[in-house]
Nucleic acid binder design. Structure first.
Lengths: 200, 200
DNA sequence: ATTCTCATCTTGGCGGTGACAAGATTGAGC
DNA sequence: GCTCAATCTTGTCACCGCCAAGATGAGAAT
């Protein structure tokens, strides 16, 4: 697999994805180009084409990686918290925000309908795996709220997802004062959705 | 002002903005180009340059128009509803969603930090005018919730804005089932934030 | 009325981009 | 050792935003 010579790179696909991820955060989506990535990797401008037939394919691969890290960010925050519904929800949402603020350009790409191809099964799978975390934290909350029906679960999940997704977007677009890391409490503001839905 | 000849267009600036707005929804932001707009308007590829020194300036002008329509969408929905806090909030949020679903590409542009120049006073003013509507609907809700302090008002507004902003983004990115127009009740789902914050 | 001035628009050209075509290189299977 | 297919290179195309230089003509100055 690792047959690297002056001519053959060895593992160009991985190199393109890794370099693409770091250049995405460095330059932003609009300034990112296949040719710049190829240049930094040290191959010719047409070399990526064999691995990614079009720019869209490479962006898809970046988004797949992104959804993996995204899911991990939520899960690792949850692991450090008590296994109570409200705490788990707060932790997951903090992981959501942490990822968005650490990789804002990647986060935006992952939800950019115009630049990604959601027909791609790999992207669908990665996206659904991340989505499953939201379902997981919404279920016990819906149960506590007495909304333990399919519609009830869906509405709680939709409300929670909307709120945190909007919060993330507004944050990285500079519309809200920057987040402060406040340990357990996920919001500097006195109001957070978990507390509103599940008052003690 | 309207000195139109074969050589001089007459009101090229307005024509570029109007054509730009319709081509934006038609083609999407990534496929929109100054040269395509100029071609449709019927001028040479460099004609826009005098009115908009760069593409960024034109996009700014489109966003300014967008924030105007956005504000109007919220206000007109509010006007058709009883002047009660929860009703006014539901109406404004429905206007928020209506704009986003009717002009998804414009909506995305208006919150695209990379493509706009928020140093532009015209854009700031238009954005703040739209934002003021959110403050207006959040104030009475915060009051009813017993959060009538600057921090309390800010947190209610932030929670409401995040929720509806995320809902709008998820909708136009195809992550939620499409909205149905349901008259007064703003959500098909049984849960909406106004009802959660202000239970009867 | 004639001339002048300058905003407006045109043509031409630059470097950069994604995509495509054709040819060079090389590892792996026979 | 030969062949072959995967991989990478060079070259080219149309399109893009932006810049420079020149053409046009409306309104002010005379």
């Amino acid at each position: 697999m690792a047959r690297r010579t002056a001519y053959h790179h060895g593992d160009l696909r991985k190199a393109l994805v890794d370099t693409g991820l770091s250049m995405l955060e460095e330059l932003g989506l609009e300034e990112l180009s296949l040719r710049k990535i190829a240049a930094r990797v040290g191959v010719s401008h047409a070399a990526p084409e064999h691995h990614f037939p079009s720019l869209r394919h490479l962006l898809n691969a970046l988004a797949v990686e992104g959804f993996g890290s995204f899911r991990q960010s939520m899960l690792s925050h949850m692991q450090a918290q008590p296994k109570l519904p409200a705490d788990q929800m707060r932790a997951a949402l903090r992981g959501y925000l942490a990822f968005a603020t650490e990789k804002p350009h990647l986060f935006r790409l992952m939800f950019n309908r115009n630049r990604l191809d959601w027909q791609d099964p790999a992207l669908c799978e990665a996206g659904e795996a991340a989505h499953a975390v939201l379902e997981e934290i919404s279920l016990p909350v819906a149960r506590r709220m007495g909304l333990d029906t399919p519609e009830g679960r869906a509405s709680v999940e939709q409300l929670v997802w909307s709120q945190i997704h909007g919060h993330a977007h507004l944050l990285i677009d500079g519309k809200l004062p920057p987040e402060v890391a406040t340990g357990c409490k996920p919001f500097a503001a006195p109001l957070d959705l978990a507390s509103v839905l599940l008052p003690d």
